[in-house]
């Protein structure tokens, strides 16, 4: 009975499924599918306000547990030493296409004007959690460093080792200058936990979780993503074919 059902099922589904799998591994077809990403981004930005704010919630909406994902501890001895010292010697470097490269300590970053926002974090896997983030607006840092008009993307270099490389992500200037795009140093009123990206993580509220780089140690302004990693703008974009534009 089972085998007959399975046989009939595989006879019916086999051409479609093997066809789809073959297409999935064909670069030409994948390029066709990838074209949809540009269409989606263009449509979202064309139809909605580019500076539209993500919804902000109330304290009552906070998730009881804010789940972490991806790297939960960067694991390197250097990071462990920083964590043990309470990130007193952590430096955030801002360089690339900027007039004045900066290296800021956590004390300096915490003394800058901060924004607090209660937002929903959406993972590409499908779950969501609501958390309260406090941090410095990225725009403030870019203005401070004097980002060049030639800068089209902001790249985030992270401290978590992902095998041979470290995590990296990038966003364009529309999101970089957005008022809710912050480098957060606190979650739910507490110093950012290691599992959630201590001491600094990106919040880019209109995109999915993998864009929100954790353990950020360097911010680089660039004109093109071609020279960053594999050229697609992020660790998962280069390694797993995830979309660079993660607004959907």
């Amino acid at each position: 009975m089972w085998s007959r059902r399975r046989l009939i099922g595989s006879l019916a589904a086999a051409p479609l499924v093997t066809g789809c799998d073959r297409l999935t591994y064909s670069e030409g077809f994948r390029d066709g599918l990838r074209a949809a990403e540009g269409l989606t981004m263009a449509a979202q930005r064309l139809i909605s306000n580019r500076s539209a704010l993500a919804r902000e919630f109330d304290e009552a909406d906070l998730s009881p547990v804010f789940r972490s994902n991806g790297t939960r501890h960067p694991g390197s001895p250097a990071y462990a030493a920083h964590a043990a010292a309470g990130f007193a010697d952590w430096r955030l470097r801002i360089d690339g296409l900027v007039a004045r490269p900066l290296a800021l300590s956590m004390a300096q970053i915490r003394s800058l004007p901060a924004r607090t926002q209660i937002t929903r974090h959406d993972c590409v896997e499908g779950w969501s959690a609501i958390g309260k983030w406090t941090g410095v607006p990225l725009k403030l840092l870019l203005d401070g460093a004097g980002a060049s008009p030639r800068a089209r993307y902001i790249v985030f270099h992270c401290a978590d080792d992902m095998g041979p490389v470290r995590y990296y992500e990038s966003i364009d200037m529309v999101d970089a200058l957005h008022p809710q795009t912050i480098l957060a140093w606190a979650l739910n009123g507490q110093p950012l936990p290691i599992a959630n990206g201590a001491p600094l993580r990106l919040r880019v509220e209109r995109q999915l979780g993998y864009k929100h780089a954790k353990y950020v140690e360097r911010i680089e302004a660039v004109a093109s993503l071609a020279a960053i990693g594999g050229g697609k703008g992020g660790y998962w974009e280069d390694r797993g074919d995830y979309e660079w534009y993660a607004g959907i």
């Binding site: 499924v17 789809c20 999935t24 994948r30 990403e37 074919d241």
Partner: peptide
């Protein structure tokens, strides 16, 4: 696997199919 595209686990691959065919 017989019910999914692609057959073997791939969230990124499935999203490429899903978000293109959505158009």
């Amino acid at each position: 696997g017989w019910a999914t595209i692609p057959t073997d686990y791939s969230l990124a691959g499935a999203r490429r199919w899903h978000l293109a065919f959505a158009w």
